[in-house]
Simulated assay, not measured.
Amino acid sequence: MTHPVRLTAAITHEGPWVVARCLEVDVTSQGSSLDQALDNLREALALYFEDMDLTERPATPILAPITIELPQP
């Protein structure tokens, strides 16, 4: 039996790749497009959780913007 679990993906561009990282667990995937990166992340997460005891759901991260000062180039 399956049930849906909502997780959070952070998306970045690294060179020619779109990288998708799950913020609740340490799983990352990539693809040549946003859709492909997310599809690959879904597949990687399914494999990650495949043999895991899911009595507890992963904690939802708190997302907060921060500002830092960097030297001028």
Score class of each variant (00 low, 15 high):
residue 1 M to R: 08
residue 2 T to F: 12
residue 2 T to Y: 09
residue 5 V to F: 03
residue 6 R to N: 05
residue 6 R to F: 01
residue 7 L to V: 10
residue 8 T to W: 08
residue 9 A to T: 05
residue 10 A to Q: 14
residue 13 H to Y: 05
residue 21 R to K: 15
residue 22 C to A: 13
residue 22 C to W: 05
residue 22 C to M: 06
residue 23 L to H: 04
residue 23 L to Y: 07
residue 24 E to S: 07
residue 25 V to N: 12
residue 28 T to L: 12
residue 29 S to F: 03
residue 31 G to L: 09
residue 33 S to P: 02
residue 36 Q to Y: 00
residue 36 Q to P: 00
residue 37 A to I: 05
residue 38 L to F: 08
residue 38 L to K: 14
residue 39 D to C: 01
residue 39 D to H: 09
residue 39 D to L: 10
residue 40 N to H: 08
residue 41 L to P: 00
residue 43 E to V: 06
residue 43 E to S: 13
residue 43 E to F: 06
residue 44 A to T: 02
residue 46 A to E: 15
residue 46 A to D: 12
residue 46 A to V: 12
residue 47 L to E: 09
residue 50 E to Q: 15
residue 51 D to S: 13
residue 52 M to S: 00
residue 54 L to H: 03
residue 57 R to W: 04
residue 60 T to Y: 08
residue 60 T to R: 15
residue 62 I to L: 10
residue 63 L to F: 11
residue 65 P to I: 01
residue 65 P to M: 02
residue 66 I to K: 08
residue 66 I to S: 15
residue 68 I to M: 10
residue 68 I to R: 14
residue 70 L to S: 05
residue 71 P to C: 03
residue 71 P to D: 15
residue 71 P to R: 12
residue 72 Q to A: 14
residue 72 Q to P: 00
residue 73 P to A: 12
residue 73 P to N: 07
